[in-house]
């Protein structure tokens, strides 16, 4: 019983303590001349879907849910965003060479097709990132039409 109390207190101390670990907000440059949606001008619905399902981790601007400022959630998210942007940054899409843009488009389409993206953990929290079959078809159809 005594150990249980100590463990509980220790957990609380750790949980409170880690709130001071800073995690920078993802608020970088979002310039229209480099932004994927601005450059490729997808149909409105597809653009909205890309914004809700991809941009949180694959751009320089994340719309954070309220609980995301608490640790350890903030660290977890921060890590995902960093990884996501390394592979694909839609805010800086214009900086990729034409060859890489084509590669990225192809990878986007196959990741969605394989169901690998959006991540399951992301979809569990962001229900609006759950693309319906029709939405998925629209996004994929458009992406493929852009892969020349």
């Amino acid at each position: 019983m005594r150990w249980l109390k100590i463990a509980a207190v220790a957990t609380v101390v750790v949980l409170v303590g880690i709130q001071w670990i800073p995690t920078p907000l993802n608020r970088g440059d979002t310039r229209a001349d480099k932004d994927f949606i601005a450059l490729y001008a997808p149909p409105a619905r597809t653009g909205t879907l890309l914004k809700t399902a991809c941009y949180d981790c694959h751009s320089n601007h994340t719309d954070y849910p309220w609980y995301s400022r608490f640790q350890p959630v903030a660290m977890f998210l921060g890590n995902h965003i960093e990884e996501g942007k390394k592979d694909l940054n839609l805010s800086e899409f214009g900086d990729y060479s034409p060859r890489r843009q084509r590669s990225k488009l192809k990878a986007m389409s196959s990741q969605i097709e394989d169901g690998a993206m959006p991540l399951t953990s992301y979809r569990l929290i962001h229900w609006n990132a759950n693309l319906s079959k029709a939405d998925e078809k629209a996004v994929l159809g458009w992406l493929k039409s852009e892969i020349k």
Binding site: D87, S97, P98, R99, R100, S103
Partner: peptide, 13 residues
């Protein structure tokens, strides 16, 4: 450069 920027990324991945 154009080719290898892309190729390197695929190889890495």
């Amino acid at each position: 450069d154009d080719t290898v920027d892309d190729a390197r990324e695929h190889a890495e991945h």
